[in-house]
Design a protein around this nucleic acid. Structure first.
Lengths: 228, 228
DNA sequence: GACGGAATCAAACAATTGTTTGAAACAGTC
DNA sequence: GACTGTTTCAAACAATTGTTTGATTCCGTC
């Protein structure tokens, strides 16, 4: 009693559709979910195939290997999130202070937004914990641009006397406060359960901006007093 | 040509010693190294046994299973690190500023010190990524005390007008800057390779203290101006 | 409706995993 | 020196892994 498996939207397992492209897409979607849930090493190709309603061999047929599939998932998710949350143009902000606020909001949005189930942030966490061959590309594509952008804003706020090392450390201080709410979420939720309620991004970015603006102004005064 | 394997410090593979206790100890030490390097799932019992100069079966004989060995390693490492880096007494510091500096140094030490190969911090990362039943105990034993301590220091620096939420967020800002250098290490090393050179803890804690003291003073002024 | 390449499948494959086994070596006691 | 319980060992075990295979099904084309 075999029903036709191709075009007629086969009601087989999940939603393979029927065309080869549909299989590919289903595998990608299933792989994303499984990789996020288990990480690369713990993810099982059989889980992915089953979830996609496809055969195990389909993975190697369409992508070559488990690792190639992983890299493909990573590449797609990262670029998608990047274009969903474009970096704000610093020239559009009236003041460096406004630019900082805008940049922090976007950074936090990227890290905390729950659309797409937070794939990229979770994968980023996994990569940082157990770096794979994918991390360098991820740093270059996702992190470095944000870091450069923030560095420019910090440079504007610290004034002309700031050296490169100071700019770098201060930028780290900004990034760290944002990433903290991603990484330490289970911890923060234990200590302050209401933190991730509605409007979290706005609330947190406002605090981080206020905290950091005070720090950067003080740092600037310090630099200029030392230089004088 | 079998040489006597027991007491006479057998020069076999590594340093099993000879007695059953020595085998146990060697297994524990090797297991610690391997678990830290690879994590529980990726750690191979054969690696551990070889590193300890023991037979694979010795693990199951002495500890019952791979998981039991892991939990034993965990238990020992956690308690050891806690007593190695005791929290500084805030009453011993002359000023709140000095107390902040001392607390940050100790926090960073705990997170970055490479003795024992940073087992507990790495485990903390794994727990935050995939929380298990061990996390609550870990928060209670390792994190919460530091957080309370830092909160007290922050309260002193922010002055009497600070509300609980502000104190909490500012303390998070402090903790986040410290944890960042643990979590984002692969990232930081890409962007600023020299960061973890000798004296990292002193250098980083000095920056974080300076940055944050400026932020906290500004915050205090803000609070007092708004209240006045 | 037969041909042919693309796609899918169940099954087998080779490698690796944690664990168990049964014999051997050991130390202590009588 | 034989007995006993403990400890160690090489080897095998059972389960799981990613991958490959060879047959089969599909679909457009002639």
């Amino acid at each position: 009693m075999k029903l036709p498996r191709r075009r007629p939207a086969s009601p087989k397992k999940t939603a393979v559709g029927g065309s080869p492209e549909a299989t590919r897409a289903a595998l990608l979607q299933a792989a994303t979910a499984v990789f996020v849930a288990s990480g690369y090493e713990q993810a099982r190709v059989r889980d992915i195939a089953e979830r996609a309603g496809a055969n195990v061999a389909a993975i190697n047929y369409h992508f070559g290997s488990k690792e190639a599939l992983y890299l493909e998932v990573l590449r797609r998710q990262a670029s998608e999130r990047i274009e969903r949350y474009p970096l704000p143009d610093p020239a559009q902000s009236a003041t460096p202070e406004a630019a900082l606020q805008a940049a922090l909001t976007m950074l936090l949005s990227r890290l905390l937004a729950d659309d797409q189930r937070g794939f990229v942030p979770k994968l980023l966490m996994r990569e940082l914990l157990a770096p794979s061959a994918a991390l360098p590309a991820m740093v270059q594509d996702v992190i470095a641009p944000q870091f450069r952008q923030l560095s420019a804003v910090v440079t504007a706020l610290l004034g002309p006397r700031a050296d490169a090392a100071t700019i770098q450390r201060c930028t780290f201080s900004l990034v760290s406060q944002c990433m903290f709410y991603l990484f330490a979420r289970p911890l923060v939720q234990t200590l302050a359960p209401q933190t991730y309620d509605d409007g979290a991004v706005a609330r947190l970015s406002a605090h981080i901006a206020q905290f950091s603006l005070g720090a950067l102004r003080a740092q600037r005064e310090l630099l200029e007093r030392a230089d004088a």
